[in-house]
Amino acid sequence: MMRRDVTPDPELGAVLRRFDAPDPTADEQRRALKRRIEAAAAPLLAERRNGAWWEFAAVWARTLVPIGLATAVAAAAFIAWTARAGAGRGALTPVPAQDSLVGSVRRDPTSQHLLDAVVAPVLPHRN
């Protein structure tokens, strides 16, 4: 019975057609609809012509993202390396004498005088 239904039924089609009023969309209405569709589509088409900002971003992302990643990796490696190099010198570690201001001044009389002058208490100036 189902197989019989795969071909159109002329009698049924004829009756159905009676309720299928002819398309009342006149030529003028059709043209107006087409104009309406094209007018509504104009901004979307213009966007496609000019390219949306995300399209530019997508194009540049292919270049900028790898460069950004490489830079970030290099920066991280540099920071890690400098941190490891200075790891033995914490904030509480005494600064060796040769690295300090005192150590940088050579131990000769002239330098000693200079050092005394730098660290001596400031006395009120008398006229």
């Binding site: 398309d23 969309t25 059709r30 609809l33 087409k34 569709i37 094209e38 589509a41 104009a42 979307l44 088409l45 213009a46 966007e47 496609r48 012509r49 000019n50």
Partner: peptide
């Protein structure tokens, strides 16, 4: 039409409008 060609879009609408309206 992907490039925003207005004429191509207009032709597409013209070609399918009747069937689209009927459906």
């Amino acid at each position: 039409m992907r490039d925003g060609d207005r004429e191509a879009y207009g032709a597409l609408v013209e070609r399918h409008l009747d069937r689209a309206l009927a459906l």
